[in-house]
Amino acid sequence: MRRALNRRSESTATLEPVESVALTPWDRVKLARHQSRPHSLDYINVLFTGFIELHGDRLFGDDPAIVGGLARFGDRTIVVIGHQKGGDTRENIRRNFGMVRPEGYRKAERLMRHAEKFGIPVVTFIDTPGAEPGIGSEERGQGTAIAESLLTMAGLKTPIVAVIIGEGGSGGALAIGMADRMLMLENAVYAVASPEACAAILWKDAGKAPQAAETMRITAEDLLSFGIVDEVIPELVPAHENTHGTISAVGDAVQRALDELMEVVDQPSGLDRLMEQRYERFRRIGVWSEALPVAAE
């Protein structure tokens, strides 16, 4: 399995499934970040037809670290939004390594409102190291932009499906991930901070990231067991070695999730129920103790 980390491109010769137990969380971090792993546009171009990219936040600029637009998925029109990393260094620099600036979140928010206006479901692909830390980003309200995107998603009267396809980097990932269904690829990771940042702060040594990754419980399996993620999409072979198989498995899972959600929406007062379910979905997340039982239920 380890050698999969070092191989760069898809090899069709040997795609033998490997036992996933052999992978450490840090292995998965490396797989999730692998440059040849399919990125949002790879999914969009294969799964959807007639993709028309829509640009800009109508306020400041267009952030290439987020792509989005209208597309056709089966017989449905959807609005798709995704973090976009580059497949090579040049592209990565143009895409800011998938690190989003405030204008990117504001573009995403605008597209979500667009979806709501026309009753179109939203599909998002999550793959980012995190929101960009930078002077300009702070000046333009990085925190506010993320918070506003979350607020929009909290009340968006149309179904939202999010798929964590690679790196789920903290608030920058959640900003387009507050969905009715959260799907996650087996080798994707989703963390409150990067293992390097966590190690730098708590271990006082960024080099201890592999230990931090272990302790932080960031794998799809962990997050499924916590009830944070709804479904893990298996990767019998790491995504970068089995691009088409992975993309089509993601497509099937998104299809199922959308079918379920549309079934809710199509019923009388379905949108109210969808809103109620989305609220409860996040309302219940958390672990605490209550020293004394609450008097009444």
């Binding site: 918070a147 979350l150 607020l151 909290a154 009340g155 903290s170 608030g171 959640l174 507050m178 989703y190 963390a191 409150v192 901070a193 966590c198 702060i201 708590l202 932080m216 419980r217 960031i218 997050l223 916590f226 944070i228 989305r278 609220y279 996040f282 309302r283 997340i285 958390g286 672990v287």
Partner: peptide
């Protein structure tokens, strides 16, 4: 967010924003 509680912490952002949306309603 509190790193020691991992993604449970991150999700409190969504939870509190959702509650704020209801407060607004």
């Amino acid at each position: 967010a509190r790193m020691h509680e991992g993604l449970f912490s991150l999700m409190q952002m969504a939870k509190t924003v959702a509650a704020f949306a209801r407060l607004g309603e």
